[in-house]
Simulated assay, not measured.
Amino acid sequence: MALVPTGVAARDLGVNATTLQRWAKAGLVKPALVTPGGHLRWDLDNLRAQLRDARLSDDD
């Protein structure tokens, strides 16, 4: 599993890094890892799945 920093994950999703950090802080998505320094690391496949699941839940 290759983990990427927030900037890379955000760029992959087409959103701003601040947006992804805000989603994580709100509990909408969960990073794969938080470093001892507080940096978020993401598994892109898992992140996309979390966002897909969140969209499906909103439609209910």
Rank of each mutant, 00 (worst) to 15 (best):
R55M: 10
R55L: 13
L40M: 13
Q50V: 09
L47M: 11
G7E: 13
W23A: 10
N16M: 10
V15L: 05
M1Y: 10
A54R: 15
V29F: 04
K25Y: 03
P5C: 11
D43P: 02
V15N: 01
L51M: 09
R48C: 01
V29E: 03
A54V: 05
V34M: 13
R55P: 00
K25H: 07
T19G: 12
T18H: 14
K30I: 06
W42Q: 09
G7C: 07
D43A: 12
T19C: 09
Q50M: 06
G38T: 00
L40R: 15
A49N: 14
S57H: 10
L20K: 03
V8S: 12
Q21D: 04
T18K: 15
D58W: 06
L40Q: 08
A26R: 07
R52V: 05
A9F: 14
L56N: 11
D58T: 13
P36W: 05
V15K: 09
A26N: 02
L33N: 07
W42N: 12
D53C: 04
A9T: 04
R55D: 06
A9I: 01
A24F: 08
V8F: 08
D53Y: 06
V15Y: 11
K30D: 02
L40C: 11
D12F: 09
L13K: 09
R22D: 02
V34A: 13
A2P: 07
R22F: 02
D45C: 08
P36K: 10
G37L: 12
D58S: 14
T18D: 13
V34Q: 15
W42P: 07
R11E: 11
L56E: 14
N46V: 00
L51E: 06
G27E: 03
K25N: 09
W42L: 09
A2R: 12
T35V: 00
D45E: 12
R48W: 01
T18W: 15
R11D: 13
A9S: 12
D43W: 03
V4A: 03
A49F: 02
V34W: 11
P5N: 06
L56F: 12
G14Q: 03
G27R: 07
D60Q: 12
P5M: 05
T18V: 10
K30A: 04
L13C: 09
V15Q: 02
K25D: 00
T19N: 11
A17S: 04
A9R: 07
D53L: 15
K25M: 06
R11H: 11
A32H: 05
L40T: 01
A2F: 11
A2Q: 05
T19Y: 12
P5E: 13
L20T: 02
G7A: 10
T19E: 04
R41A: 08
G7S: 11
